[in-house]
Amino acid sequence: MATVSFREERCKGCELCITVCPEKIIVLADHFNAMGFHPATVVEMDKCKGCAMCARMCPDVVIEVVKEEKQA
């Protein structure tokens, strides 16, 4: 279980994260951010494996990835 968070106000809607997400769970939101872009967002967070491909591909360092680790 992982959580991806976007600094929405900094997203330029370039969609590069969308192209590399293996689970295809990132979309552009319907609303605009203050810069006038549709920011990227995750629709089904429970499907996220925390691979961080999106974050690695993001040219604006918008994405942070947190993974829940199983208790030992």
């Binding site: 959580t3 900094r10 809607g13 925390g50 942070e64 947190v66 993974k67 829940e68 680790e69």
Partner: peptide, 20 residues
């Protein structure tokens, strides 16, 4: 919870001016 990807410390918090 473990942060596996975050903004590096060697970047300031300033937003890049580059095109989308």
């Amino acid at each position: 919870a473990k942060v596996i990807f975050k903004r590096p410390e060697a970047l300031t918090d300033k937003q890049f001016h580059y095109c989308p």
